[in-house]
Amino acid sequence: MTMRRAEPRRKKRRMNELLERALFRPYAALMTLVEVVIDPIQRLIGQRRMGYFFVLPNLLVFGIFILFPMLLNFYYGFTAGNSILPQNREFVGTANLEALFNCTDFANPNTCQHDRFWRAVGNTSGFVVFQVGIMVIFALITALALNRDIRARGFFRGVFFYPVLLSPVVVALIWKWMLQPEGIFNGVLVSTGLERMDFLTDPTQARLWVIIVSVWAQMGFHTLILLAGLQSIPKELYEAAWMDGAGAWRSFRSVTLPLLMPTMVVVLVLSLIRAVQVFDQVYVLTTGGPGTATLYMVQYIFQTAFDRRDFGVAAAASLVLAVVLLFLTLFQLRLGRTSEIA
């Protein structure tokens, strides 16, 4: 293995030297120039307080564009009106939240004042359960396959990862083209003598394909994390299990699974958090349709705010989403702690 890699490694080192010379010199010149401005600041505030200085730019951007909006979101959630300007909004207390939860029967969105919200909640729940379930299973199988002693592992790893890099818009267009009525899937169906199908115009089919597409697009990322988890399991444990007479299945169940559990938890929670936020792919693929079959929470918030300009209800809905995400994050922290102890 090391013998085979020796030659490319030398070549790589030469490349790195070249890169370093091309990149580092302008970088050093620029930074020396900046030094002229920043060193007086150090003289002014003293070396010990330079910590504040280094944190400041990031803290400013963070405060203005993330932290402040987070707090302001509560204000929007508790006010009404069509104006986005805070001073022109009327305080209505929990009226927006109450309106969202104004349902005579929560199982039936038609009985709700904001029926689209509850459809979005229902659709999102279904999507999260199936998308995460299917994706984690396939990611695990793929990671196990890639963890075996096989040829061209790097190539296969890259193949499964490639769709992760594609933008949601590109992913959606690729699949929209295949799923359209005259597309390749219907072509294959017709050439084998089967009936055509309405992939994106039938509600159940559309929901199914939205899940398939997002599994296709995101699976590689989770596969990589699981693969890293698998590779961190010491080989000696498998050897010990083998010496004790454990077969492949037994050593998978008693060595691989328990030791992979912490990684599995990370993958599960990361994919849950992403699934709850499903938006862009679906927006391009189905625009939430047919009807409201693939309308999810983020699209509901986006359209309520920017198409209907009902900022209060949209902000209230995003508070609900934030609570769900907070719950998932806490869940992850908790699970992370227990798996550390175990």
Binding site: I64, F65, I66, F68, P69, M70, L72, N73, Y75, Y76, I84, L85, P86, Q277, F279, V298, I301, F302, A305, F306, F311, A314, A315, S318, L321, A322, L325
Partner: peptide
């Protein structure tokens, strides 16, 4: 970003 769309847009 989806959670703070409206206030972030205001800013």
């Amino acid at each position: 970003i989806s959670v703070i769309l409206i206030p972030a847009f205001l800013v």
